[in-house]
Amino acid sequence: MKKLIFGFFTLASFATIFTNCKKDDKEDLSGTGSVTLEFDNRAGNAAFAFGTNYTNAAGETVKFSTFNYFVSNFVFVKTDGTEYVVPKDSCYFLCKHENADSREITISGIPAGDYEEVRFIIGVDSAKSVSDIAQRTGVLDPAAGAAGMYWAWNSGYIFVKVEGTSPQAPLNTMTGENTIEYHTGLFGGKDTPTLNNIKNVEIHSHDDAAKVRRDKEAPQFHIYVDVLEMFTSPTNISVAANPTSHAGAFSKTVADNYADMFTLDHVHNHE
């Protein structure tokens, strides 16, 4: 029995060494590579498009004209649990439906390895929200890239902006349409607290890990973003009862709902 166990271990050790050697020959795990994340907008089981009618969980017909969101503070987790935190100066992205390029983001400088999890937040963290204006460039510049995604009266970014119409929504006298409008932000306040609607997302790949390699094309996390999730779970939102939401208490309901709108479709490794 002892012999057998010894023999088994020896065999196992050899096998390990053998595969390791083989792996080393085959794969270079030195240096850094890139990952892309494709944010694929959806409406339930359908592809998302502006101007198309969908049905929300309350059974109402909704049609959209704006679907923007900030995603930031990415962390990638290897299969062995090691984490890579994307540096602050390159971790903020504003995705707009009408701009497909803005929804396919590439993050480089990631140590080579196999990544099975990505974490990020929906919105902009509180530290960045109160940071020096000169440090807010690109999509974070209220006078440039963040235009339309920034509240000047309640300083902070609009994390998620969804606009459209619904025949079930009341007529909006300002727009002359049956407008639906959900602008959600609020990072928790600087010195005096406010509501905090920052939401954490964890996306786990149970099948394939994203293989980040120095000299290979970036693997892709293909992520579904389901706009209809904003209207349900945990709370159904009726556009007839709540056609709009901005920086009010109701925005918590909207944010709690959209917290789970990001899900993994698949990880794609380019061989």
Binding site: V130, D132, I133, P142, A143, Y150, W151, A152, W153, N154, S155, G189, K190, D191, T192
Partner: peptide, 18 residues
């Protein structure tokens, strides 16, 4: 430490945007 009657702006640099 904050600006406007409701304190909606936490930094002087951001005041004019409002």
């Amino acid at each position: 430490t904050s600006f406007f009657w409701d304190g909606g702006v936490p930094n002087l640099d951001l005041v004019p945007l409002n």
